[in-house]
Design a protein around this nucleic acid. Structure first.
Length: 480
RNA sequence: CGGGGCGUAGCGCAGACCGGUAGCGCACCUGAAUGGGGUUCAGGAGGUCGCUGGUUCAAAUCCAGUCGCCCCGACCA
């Protein structure tokens, strides 16, 4: 029973996504600024929830927040060879200011490794200054050729962590700790989206990094979405920006740096992982509003008794549940039911004259849409019942997403199986090919190696392409 | 950069071939009734027809130019 104005997923998945964004009032196109969107209050509230969950974890692991300039001297970008090459095509330049041509143009940051590297070089002198553990919440700009709300926009919001360490081992530990304790934990626990942790291949890694790790999630069309990345930058940026320190033996050494980020793209992941043909579904732990109350009445007398009961019941929720009462008078209850389902509120409580008499309410859960997810229950113990239901919904969304991913993950032994598998989801296979092989497969199948999973099989197998024996498995998929 | 399409009310569109001073649906405003799964009736407001120029007594409509947006591809993640 698809809602009005929402294209069913099976008909056109990409249009379905755009419909959800529009209908659930998450974003508006900033048609006057190419490739940009407006994060409307509902969409921004989801981002605030993401920020809260990540910021807590980032701080709990010893990091602090700071803020660096939006504009970066163009020459900075040039200092790291791979980095320039990687970002040059999508950089926006500022060449004038105060009505005059600038001596040196600035670029609008596509990411901040370079400018932060410059300051870290100033700040770091001794091994006693390390580690530097700083995060920044910021906007960045990349002139993308083709944009989609949240998934790829010219300007987007994110956090970028930038750290400096004395040794390679420390940097590697930091990179993996962020991947595990911050990103994976947040995305799985709060967003209820299961992820695969892995290493990027040379072809897919961050420009300038030694190694890039990532978490990859599966969307409901079987395509992969990179939900977060964590890079061990080695000494590449330390060399380019001269970040050095004197160690305990009074020797000057280049430091080891890392960077890691997740962006507003996560909102896209959230939508595509959970939502259905009736609209958005937001996992309870992240939902700006967890419970909506729809009062039902026919006249002023009924209205006052019903509203009285609503007041009495919701008074118990303060500090426990994020809720709102939909007391708009010009809309029918049926309309409101549909609207709140469309907007993905996890639990809906309906309360009418009959409920007042019988000491009941109707309780509906969003993950089971329509009347099927609705039950009449007693008012006593309602708060606890809702709290338990929210936990249950959170778990059921995660389980559902995991079951879906497993059902759409295929082991391929031959190239033909790989080609067939990426049509429908993730393909797991042994791989001993080269970067050129990857490129060729991408041309032929539009699929790329999403990652080399951290969880690897115990035994060896034969490469899906070359037939060579290898112990390394990779995951192929088409990606957003 | 190549191919295609589109600019008329907030949104979606008709009107254009055949020139005569702009219309429909939804949304919006007012009132009344309705109210447990997208409520009904009545009334109302809202448009320099993307922009510039030309043809004409008369241009949304014909002609020329120009700007912008969308889709497909290339590119990127």
């Amino acid at each position: 029973m698809a809602k009005e104005g929402i294209t069913p997923r099976a008909q056109d998945y990409s249009q379905w996504y755009l419909d959800i964004v529009r209908q659930a009032d998450l974003a508006d196109y900033a048609e006057i600024v190419r490739g940009c969107i407006v994060f409307k209050p509902t969409g921004y509230a989801i981002w605030e929830g993401i920020q809260r969950g990540l910021d807590e974890r980032i701080k709990a692991t010893g990091h602090v927040n700071a803020y660096f300039p939006l504009l970066i001297p163009k020459s900075f970008l040039m200092r790291e060879a791979e980095h320039v090459e990687g970002f040059a095509p999508e950089v926006v330049e500022v060449t004038r200011g105060g009505g005059e041509e600038l001596a040196e143009p600035y670029v609008v940051r596509p990411t901040s490794e370079t400018i932060i590297g410059y300051f870290y070089a100033k700040w770091v002198r001794s091994w006693r200054d390390l580690p530097v553990l700083i995060n920044q919440w910021a906007n960045v700009m990349r002139w993308e050729m083709r944009t989609r709300p949240f998934l790829r926009t010219a300007e987007f919001l994110w956090q970028e962590g930038h750290t400096v360490h004395a040794t390679e081992a420390d940097a590697e530990h930091e990179t993996l700790m962020i991947l595990n304790d911050v990103y994976t934990d947040f995305v799985e626990q709060e967003m209820a989206v299961p992820v695969i942790r892995g290493l990027k291949t040379e072809k897919e890694k961050f420009p300038g990094a030694l190694r890039s790790y990532c978490i990859e999630a599966m969307m409901q069309d079987g395509r992969a979405l990179q939900a977060g990345t964590s890079h061990n930058l080695g000494q590449n940026f330390a060399r380019a920006f001269d970040i050095t320190f004197t160690n305990q033996n009074n020797t000057i050494q280049h430091a080891w740096t890392t960077s890691w980020g997740v962006s507003t793209r996560l909102i896209g992941a959230l939508i595509m992982a959970h939502s259905d043909d009736d609209g958005l579904i937001i996992p309870p732990r992240l939902a700006p509003t967890q419970v909506v109350v729809v009062p039902i009445y026919r006249n002023d007398t009924e209205r006052s008794t019903v509203m009285e009961a609503v007041q009495r019941i919701t008074a118990l929720w303060r500090g426990k549940l994020r809720f709102r009462v939909d007391d708009r008078d010009n809309l029918t209850p049926g309309y409101k039911f549909n609207e709140w389902e469309l907007k993905g509120i996890p639990v809906r409580i309906e309360l009418g004259p009959r409920d007042v008499q019988q000491d009941t309410v109707a309780i509906a859960r969003r993950d089971i849409p329509g009347r099927a997810g609705k039950a009449f229950v007693s008012q006593s113990g309602l708060t606890e019942r809702i709290e338990a239901l929210l936990v249950e919904i959170q778990q059921s969304l995660f389980d559902r997403a995991l079951t879906f991913r497993d059902a759409h993950t295929f082991d391929a032994r031959t190239y033909a199986e790989l080609v067939e598998g990426v049509e429908r989801g993730f393909v797991r296979c042994y791989w001993a090919g080269t970067t050129d092989d990857e490129r060729r497969i991408q041309e032929e199948t539009r699929a790329t190696i999403r990652c080399i999973p951290l969880d690897q099989p115990a035994s060896a197998g034969r490469c899906v392409l070359t037939g060579a024996e290898t112990t390394q498995q990779v995951v192929f998929a088409r990606a957003y």
